[in-house]
Computed example of a mutant assay.
Amino acid sequence: MDFDHTDEQRALRDAVRGLLGTAYGTIQGRRDATAKEPGYDESMWSRLAAMGVLGLPFAEEAGGMGAGPVEVGVVAEEIGRVLAPEPFVEAVVLCGGLLARAGADVSGIADGTLLPAYVGGPGVTARRDGERWVLDGGASPVLNGARADLLVVVADVGGTPALFTTAGGERTPFSTYDGGRAARVAFDATAAGPLGDPAADATGLIAYARARAQVAYAHEALGAMERALEITRDYLRDRRQFGKPLSAFQNLSFRASDMYVSLELARSTVLWASMVLAERDETGGDGAGGDGAGGDRTQSGAAEGIEAASRAKLRVAESGRHIGQEAVQLHGGIGMTMEYQVGHYAMRLTAIEHLLGDRRHHLSRLAAAVGDHRAVNPLQ
């Protein structure tokens, strides 16, 4: 596999970095955006749409650019580098991915006029009420749930998950500890429209869309980890104690080196996972199912992509916790303050660890599948 970015991917990276740098070049820019509703800069969201970033993963006929997981990862990394609070992964990758695969119109997401939010978990059911479908139950947290124009809901229908959309529901907003926004959403016979056939089991479709979002979150974490390491490196180089820079103390240099190793382990795993998803997209392995041998290949490809996403999310959880904690500790007392930027990176890395399955969840999933792989005799 070739892990190098193409000229087009590097150009995309530079363009997004330049745009985000205008608002989030310093940590104060992020503080200003998250201090008021809706918790991100809506003008920046419109500028990302104008650049084509919000339509990146969608087909050209839907107003998108037809890009794949690698290009999406390039954007997510730049978001992570500056801790931009815009809901790119939640709205575009996860909700947009579900809507696009269900054949729904995603042009509003691409042009920035429609903000969707994902409602998952086991607490929502759907039922027929005369000629319409209604939702009952609730979920929390729903990221950007109070601001969202449309909720993309996973609901239980007779024991199997199905997808619905609704603009209703009672929404109680609150702030997340990393500065974002979320809501508690409650449904009480709330009118909804099905995405696809509500009688069909949407497990595979949902799992694959979540896998793509998990890898995108992993890329966001890569950007945050890389920047946290850079900040720490510069601090150790510039801060002096006993007449010498902190980088001259062997123990501190070794700890910074271990942070670099953690970053590169995560980077290689996440890039590999992105390329697995890209390959699955080319062969039609999107989890949508199929019949006969072609359907078997599709399901096999989707399973590989989902497993790769779990591996990436697990590795990022381990590396993110290590780098975030070490970045704070190597800064000493200043790293513990809200005024200094490195603590914000540690908080965001912790938040990403718990989005769409935490370390324990993905470790359990991978451990349960160990028996599906062949054993290797190292003596043969």
Results as ranks from 00 to 15, higher is better:
Glu90Arg: 00
Ala91Pro: 05
Val92His: 07
Val92Cys: 09
Val92Phe: 09
Val92Thr: 10
Val93Trp: 13
Cys95Glu: 08
Gly96Phe: 06
Gly96Thr: 03
Leu98Pro: 09
Leu98Trp: 11
Leu99Lys: 01
Leu99Ala: 09
Ala100Cys: 05
Ala100Pro: 04
Arg101Ser: 15
Arg101Leu: 15
Gly103Val: 05
Gly103Phe: 12
Ala104Lys: 09
Ala104Leu: 14
Ala104His: 10
Ala104Thr: 03
Ala104Asp: 15
Asp105Arg: 03
Asp105Phe: 13
Val106Leu: 08
Ser107His: 08
Ser107Ala: 15
Gly108Met: 11
Gly108Gln: 10
Gly108Ala: 12
Thr113Val: 07
Thr113Gln: 13
Leu114Glu: 15
Leu114Asn: 11
Leu115Asn: 05
Leu115Phe: 14
Pro116Val: 06
Pro116Cys: 12
Ala117Asp: 09
Ala117Phe: 07
Tyr118Trp: 14
Tyr118Met: 05
Gly120Glu: 10
Gly120Ile: 02
Gly120Ala: 14
Pro122Asp: 10
Pro122Ser: 05
Gly123Ser: 12
Val124Gln: 11
Val124Asn: 09
Thr125Asp: 14
Ala126Val: 13
Arg127Asp: 07
Arg128Trp: 06
Arg128Leu: 13
Arg128Lys: 07
Arg128Glu: 15
Asp129Met: 05
Gly130Phe: 09
Gly130Glu: 10
Glu131Ala: 15
Glu131Met: 07
Glu131Phe: 11
Arg132Cys: 03
Arg132Met: 06
Val134His: 07
Asp136Ser: 13
Asp136Val: 02
Asp136Arg: 04
Asp136His: 11
Gly137Val: 04
Gly137Asp: 10
Gly138His: 02
Gly138Asp: 05
Gly138Lys: 00
Ala139Pro: 04
Ala139Val: 00
Ala139His: 00
Ala139Thr: 00
Ala139Met: 01
Ser140Lys: 00
Ser140Gly: 02
Ser140Pro: 02
Ser140Trp: 00
Pro141Glu: 01
Pro141Thr: 00
Pro141Ile: 00
Val142Ile: 13
Leu143Pro: 02
Leu143Phe: 12
Asn144Pro: 03
Asn144Thr: 00
Gly145Ile: 04
Gly145Met: 06
Ala146Pro: 02
Arg147Gly: 02
Arg147Thr: 10
Ala148Gln: 04
Asp149Pro: 04
Asp149His: 14
Asp149Phe: 07
Leu150Thr: 01
Leu150Pro: 01
Leu150Arg: 10
Leu151Asp: 08
Leu151Ile: 02
Leu151Thr: 00
Leu151Pro: 13
Val152Leu: 15
Val153Phe: 15
Val153Thr: 10
Val153Pro: 12
Val153Gln: 13
Val154Gln: 14
Val154Tyr: 12
Val154Glu: 15
Ala155Lys: 03
Ala155Glu: 11
Ala155His: 09
Asp156Val: 02
Asp156Ile: 01
Asp156Cys: 07
